[in-house]
Design a protein around this nucleic acid. Sequence first.
DNA 1: GTTCTGACTGGGT
DNA 2: AACCCAGCCAGAA
Length: 114
Amino acid sequence: MEDSKSNFFKDVHEVARLIPAGRVTSYGAIAAYLGVKRSARMVGWAMNQAHGDESIPAHRVVNRIGVLSGKHNFLGGPEVMQQRLEAEGVRVQKDQVQDFDQVFWDPMVELGVD
DNA sequence: GTTCTGACTGGGT
DNA sequence: AACCCAGCCAGAA
């Protein structure tokens, strides 16, 4: 009755932290897991609020085609996102995650759809 | 207060 | 295959 909205952002941050190193997920996947599949944009906005919080691996969140859509939003520069991904073993080329299907981490599956 | 944009996505043209 | 449009919601001008 009060923080139903803030709860959404909090859930996004929580799921983001659950992303294992060397894996990536999409905004839509997180949104769908939270039951707000249409609000994928809000997931991105939630990450924007997460700026400065190193507990939230925002660099592991990309769009549905594996493109580092939010790299420009990172502190320090857009290359930081790719650098971090490569440091975890994720191959990135031209702002796109290589073998996206392999490194894709779906909360619906990994955490359980139930 | 209205309008536009945006770290998205799916569907239509 | 490329481009356009509608839906979602929050913040900035």
